[in-house]
Amino acid sequence: MPDIYDFSIETLNGQPLPLANYRGKVLLLVNTASECGFTAQLGGLEQLYQRYRGQGLEIIGFPCNQFGGQEPGDAAAIGQFCQKNFGVSFALSAKIDVNGADAHPLWRHLVAAKPGLLGSRRVKWNFTKFLIDSEGRVLKRFAPYVKPAALERAIENALQAPAA
Rank of each mutant, 00 (worst) to 15 (best):
I60A: 01
G54D: 11
K84V: 10
I78D: 12
E135F: 11
A103D: 04
K147H: 03
Q160T: 13
L106F: 04
N65S: 02
A94H: 08
D102P: 10
Y49S: 06
W125K: 11
Q70G: 05
A20P: 09
N157E: 15
Y5G: 02
G136L: 08
Y22E: 10
P105I: 12
W107M: 02
K140P: 06
F142P: 12
N65Y: 13
A164W: 13
N126H: 12
Y5E: 00
I59W: 11
F127Y: 10
L19I: 09
L159W: 05
P148L: 03
G116Q: 03
G87E: 14
G54A: 05
G24W: 07
S93H: 09
P18L: 01
V26K: 01
D6R: 12
I4K: 04
A158Y: 00
I9W: 08
A150I: 06
A20K: 10
P63V: 11
N99T: 01
G37T: 04
P72E: 00
L17H: 09
V111G: 06
A113S: 15
L151A: 04
V146N: 03
G87K: 08
V88A: 06
T32I: 05
F130T: 05
I4A: 13
V111H: 01
Y145N: 14
A113L: 14
E152S: 11
K95W: 02
I4Y: 01
L42A: 02
T32G: 01
F86Q: 01
Q15S: 06
L139Q: 08
L106Q: 08
F67H: 09
G56H: 04
E152N: 11
I132T: 04
G61M: 12
L118R: 12
I78E: 00
G136F: 07
N13T: 09
G54Q: 10
P148F: 04
V26A: 06
Y22P: 10
A20R: 15
G14M: 00
E35T: 14
D133N: 07
I132C: 02
R137Q: 15
A163V: 10
D97L: 04
H109V: 03
R153T: 12
P144K: 14
G68N: 05
R51Q: 15
L57C: 00
L106H: 05
L106T: 03
L17Q: 09
K114I: 03
K84M: 14
Y22D: 05
E71R: 00
F90C: 12
Q80G: 15
L28F: 00
A20S: 13
Q160R: 11
L92C: 14
V98S: 10
D6T: 15
T11W: 02
P16N: 07
L27E: 06
R23D: 08
F130C: 06
Q66A: 00
A161L: 14
I96L: 15
V138N: 02
E156G: 09
A91P: 09
L19C: 08
P72K: 03
R137G: 13
L110E: 07
N99G: 07
N21Q: 13
E58Y: 06
F142D: 06
S89Q: 14
L45I: 04
D97V: 07
Y145V: 15
N21G: 11
N31I: 04
G56M: 11
F130D: 00
R153Q: 11
G44L: 08
H104Q: 05
P63H: 04
A94P: 10
L29M: 09
R108M: 10
P148T: 05
G56Q: 03
H109F: 12
A20N: 11
G61E: 01
L17E: 13
G43N: 02
G56L: 03
K147I: 07
A158R: 03
E35W: 08
P105N: 07
